[in-house]
Design a protein around this nucleic acid. Structure first.
Length: 751
DNA sequence: CCGTTACTCGTTTTT
DNA sequence: CGAGTAACGG
């Protein structure tokens, strides 16, 4: 196994320990993906520890994005060949959507169930609010949806939710939740949360099915475990129950999705559920320079909730981290553009080696504009993704109606788009009739005359019904692409869009064409055997912004959340200002503030060679200017690690003062952590052993040392020459220090 | 029934 | 500022 040589000892252990529960705490840039890849390749090629062959069909690997899965699969394929294609690998959502499709009847759905995205779900909630006359100005649909979603994540069903009702809010949520679930079911639709909930229901009520999957998935791997929610946690627990061969990989310091229900306790409590868990820590970073890492370590150290670990590196020193202060956000964008323009030649980098990261999608505009002005192409990831565009969703709604005649949300979207004389009043009548009689929308539409009488509207409806019927017939005789093309040209959408000759209008036509192309290549894809339109829609509805990656050479712009798991030679983190990052909404609670800090940690650790942290003193908010100040996260960094761009001396002095004040007066306390037992074990490990005196020459990067004054720390780098050896040491709760070995009496910690 | 115009409100982050 | 909604006139 030649690739084992590329692994350090803990990595090797994580790869070759095939049996039993394992938790890998993988610091940023510690080769986590490499380990996962090698681990699977190792099992396939070499078999398990008992010397048995492992088949790819027995491995289930759950990742955070489809892109991560795709990349991992490709890398494994390079190592072991085409059998890699047979591994079950994907996001929780896509894997279980696939399983649900084969088992849908068992839980009262048909296999062509529709997946409702955020917009669909919220739209449905909105109509429910209207129907039961709850003021949507007070009880915001998105907020209600969030509460329902959280409840679902916690496996609280609508009827169980009743016991949590204590005020007006929970009461309304309860009312809506009940109807919402009913309506989803009637529509033969599931929302994102259902894709995790329904499998659990399926397993709970069908022990034979559970047993089947438990047997089948002998080895389970979960990546980004720190961002799994309770439902995902339960799924893995169910599935791993029989074989107990579960490997979870994660980094508590990179847990940034609690707003989506991610539960950090999953990682902290893992070995309660799997008592013989082997904990492996990967702490050597292969990505970033010591300077970048020092900044990251120093900031994250301010968090109370964390598993103690020290990420260190042997990489070359590199440049200091640069802090950029700008007057306005335009100014900020110009500077970023300027730096990219000059650095790309200086460092001989491609444009796609640069990334600009921000806290909120809204910030992308100014940066885009700044880059455009100097002629640098930019690629904005996220925000409104392709499949969320109106014209795309419109066409997809036609597909959905053709496949699933109960899909209420899709019906409402297209019944009068393009306009065909079926107005609001008429639609209301139809919905009303459906609700009153309990008949489906499709049924009412088919018997329009009976419910609405004869008239213009009824004729229009009959025309619509005929059209859909025609599409349905067509779809049974033609493939997905032919069908899609036929629908797009016949439903009037193309005609409607072509009327608009503005640049945006033209781009909309192109987008629709692009969707058709995507379906064509889906049909032509030989590695895919399910070629139905239905399967295409399923795949499409679970795409992430990170999943789309055209390979043009352009500067990448995205949110920090989207950047998780990626790395770039040069990183700009922009808008690092109070009230923006950390977000104003997070200031009320410690845990939310700590999540912001973890987010900052994620941002910083994306950088390989150069990192710029930028803030502007003025920024547009809600259309008018507002003043802003540097984020506390900047002040938490030791100024010795930083370079200040612009009116330097003045700013440095100010910054040093800030930092000093911060250390003296702030809430900052050396880390006395609140740990669970996992954390405690890890801490205890670090405190056992004795100290031995040493000569400067004995010290190596990665060693644990003890300093008289600063206590215990880990060497993150060594430089200087002969007499002047300097060690960069990261001390627990104190941060980075550079020590002259001549003077510092360091002791090696021996275990 | 349809399209235009005036107003309100909001920003976290996304499978 | 811009998206999304309510109100109005054709």
């Amino acid at each position: 196994m030649d690739f084992l040589n590329s692994l350090n000892p803990p990595q090797k252990e994580a790869v070759t320990t095939t049996e039993g529960p394992i938790m890998v705490i993988a610091g940023a840039g510690s080769g986590k993906t490499h380990v996962l890849t090698c681990r699977i390749a190792y099992m396939l090629k070499k078999g398990n520890q008992n010397g048995e062959r492992v088949s790819p069909f027995e491995i289930l690997a759950l990742t955070f994005t489809n892109k991560a899965a795709k990349e991992m699969r490709e890398r494994i394929e390079k190592m072991v060949g085409t059998e890699a294609r047979n591994i079950w690998m994907g996001t929780f959502h896509s894997i279980f959507a696939r399983i649900l499709r084969t088992q849908a009847e068992k839980i009262g759905f048909s296999k062509d169930f529709t997946i409702y995205d955020q917009e669909d779900a919220q739209g449905l909630i909105k109509t429910i609010l209207k129907e039961i006359k709850i003021d949507e100005k007070v009880f915001k649909p998105n907020y209600i949806h969030h509460r329902i979603s959280m409840a679902k994540n916690m496996l609280v069903t609508a009827s169980e939710y009743q016991q949590y009702v204590r005020d007006e809010w929970t009461e309304k949520t309860y009312e809506v939740y009940k109807i919402y679930e009913q309506r989803l079911k009637n529509a033969n639709a599931m929302d994102f949360d259902d894709l995790l909930l329904k499998p659990l229901e399926l397993f709970r009520d069908n022990p034979d099915i559970l047993a089947y999957y438990q047997n089948r998935f002998e080895y389970i791997l979960v990546d980004e475990y720190q961002d799994t929610n309770h439902a995902q946690y339960m799924i893995t627990r169910y599935l791993a129950h029989k074989h107990q061969n579960i490997t979870v990989v994660g980094d508590d310091a990179q847990s940034i999705y609690s707003f989506r229900g991610a539960n950090i306790q999953n990682i902290l409590n893992f070995n309660k559920d799997f008592p013989n868990t082997k904990v492996i820590k990967l702490e050597q970073n292969y990505r970033s320079t010591p300077n970048i890492l020092a900044v990251a370590n120093e900031v994250i150290q301010k968090n109370k909730d964390q598993i103690q670990k020290i990420v260190w590196t042997e990489n070359k020193e590199g440049d200091k981290v640069t802090v950029i202060r700008s007057l306005t956000e335009q100014d900020e964008a110009n500077r970023v553009a300027d730096i990219i323009r000059s650095t790309r030649y200086e460092l001989n980098l491609a444009l796609k080696d640069f990334v600009v990261l921000y806290r909120t999608n809204a910030q992308s505009r100014a940066i885009e504009e700044g880059l455009r002005k100097v002629g640098l192409p930019a690629r904005v990831i996220g925000g409104m993704s392709f499949y969320q565009r109106k014209e795309i969703k419109d066409l997809i709604a036609y597909f959905r109606v053709v496949l699933n005649d109960n899909d209420e949300t899709a019906f409402k979207r297209i019944i009068n788009y393009p306009t065909r004389g079926i107005g609001e009043v008429t639609i209301e009548k139809i919905l009303d009739a459906s609700r009153k009689t309990g008949n489906s929308l499709w049924y009412i539409l088919n018997h329009a005359e009976q419910y609405l009488g004869k008239g213009k509207s009824t004729a229009a409806i009959q025309g619509f019904v005929e059209m859909i019927q025609n599409f349905r017939d067509y779809s049974t005789k033609n493939d997905a692409y032919q069908t899609a093309k036929h629908i797009a040209h016949t439903c009037g959408l193309f005609k409607e869009l072509k009327n608009d000759t503005s640049p945006e209008g033209i781009s909309r036509v192109e987008n629709v064409q692009e969707l058709l192309n995507a379906i064509k290549s889906f049909v032509d894809d030989t590695s895919q055997n399910d070629k139905s339109l239905s399967f295409f829609l399923q795949e499409v509805s679970l795409l992430t912004s990170a999943d789309l990656s055209p390979d043009e050479d352009a500067v990448t712009l995205m949110t920090i959340h989207t950047a998780k798991g990626l790395e770039f030679p040069v990183v700009f983190v922009v808008g690092v200002e109070e009230d923006l990052f950390p977000s104003r909404a997070s200031l009320n609670s410690r845990s939310e503030l700590e999540e912001e800090r973890r987010l900052f940690y994620v941002a910083v650790t994306r950088a390989k060679y150069r990192l710029y942290i930028s803030y502007a003193e003025q920024r547009y908010r809600y259309g008018d200017v507002s003043e802003s100040t540097a984020s506390r996260f900047i002040k938490e960094i030791n100024p010795n690690l930083l370079n200040f761009e612009g009116r330097a001396s003045q700013i440095i002095r100010k910054h040093q003062k800030n930092h000093q004040q911060y250390l003296e007066h702030s809430l900052y306390q050396p880390s006395v952590k609140s740990f669970t037992h996992v954390g405690e074990n890890i801490i205890q490990d670090e405190f056992k052993g004795e100290f031995i005196p040493c000569n400067p020459g004995d010290l190596r990067v990665g060693m644990e040392v003890r300093h008289e004054k600063f206590g215990k720390g880990k060497i993150t780098a060594i430089d200087g020459t002969e007499d002047n050896f300097k060690a960069h040491v990261f001390f627990n709760g104190i941060g980075n220090k550079t020590l002259l070995l001549k003077y510092a009496k360091l002791m090696i910690v021996k275990d």
